[in-house]
Amino acid sequence: MPDGQAFLEVKDLKIHFPTDDGLVRSADGLSFKLERGRTLGIVGESGSGKSVTSLGIMGIYNKRNSQISGEIWLDGDEIVSAGQETVRKLRGNKLAMIFQDPLSAMHPYYTVGHQIIEAYQVHHNVSKKVARKHAIDMLGRVGIPQPDRRVDDYPHQFSGGMRQRAMIAMALVNDPQLLIADEPTTALDVTVQAQIMDLMHDLQAEFNSALIVITHDLGVVAELADDVLVMYGGKCIEYGSASTIFERPEHPYTWGLLGSMPRMDRPTQDRLVPIPGSPPSLINLPQGCAFSPRCAYEPQTGGLGTTVPPELVRAGGSNHLVRCHLPTEERQRIWAEEVKPKLEAQ
């Protein structure tokens, strides 16, 4: 491994889909790093390209309808340029993924056990009996009661929370070093959400894996993440440590996300202040800054916001990047004087 390279290093990752209406730039020049034992949270509204990015890292894309470029280094190996068969052998083994809706993500016609056994046997040349023992063991570890009996149940016989636990068991069955969780708790109710997040946290510590949590819920990120990447329209618009993003965010979009974040410690009535407007179409991104049509501070850019796309540049904090035309001091002033007091007063 070259000196100083992180366990996972993504460089200028682009995933584009040519369609009849034009080129969909679902992921457009993403770069980030992640070490084992650490957690990266990727946040953004629906359609910002979070799932496309995670599937891209997993190597799940159809070469016939997508274009992928950039580099993904995992433990010293580059995956984008690697052969499909090489990536397939890593998939589910060294890197694994948990999906949003555990009911539709499991095959309705196979037992939970069968699906975990299958995941184990693809990468381990063992008998079904051994794999089954392993599957039962895994189900027990993710907190399924009576795993030796539940192993023969079908997904529809599990509750939502148990299904997600089973999905986690399936993803972790091969001790992956990188785990990607795409909205792992969105489909679950609040109490179960908390349990699943605790579970993922504990398991990550136990396996010392790198974890990417994808969500549009900053609450989940606050709970789990060490670093945070905020996505907007397929691009990274702010990137930094979790403490930086929560305490000194510099992008107006991140401010908006923080404002719309559900807070456990606040009465529920007045907690949600949605960001005005809707996410951009990835085909006809607005001229200049993609966020400009929804940005309250756009007039302060002196016309730059609607004409020139901003670059991702260093911001106030250490290892803190932001994509915004406002001068750093101005952003810090707005945050400290205008936005933060408002959020705290909420």
């Binding site: 589910g92 095959h107 299958e118 990468h123």
Partner: peptide
Amino acid sequence: GEDYIRTARAKGLPERDVTVKHGLRAALT
């Protein structure tokens, strides 16, 4: 196009198993 096909791929199953054991199996019903 179902989610469980994506899961099958994420497990690292060879594409043939994804197609036959997961895809065709469901389409057959």
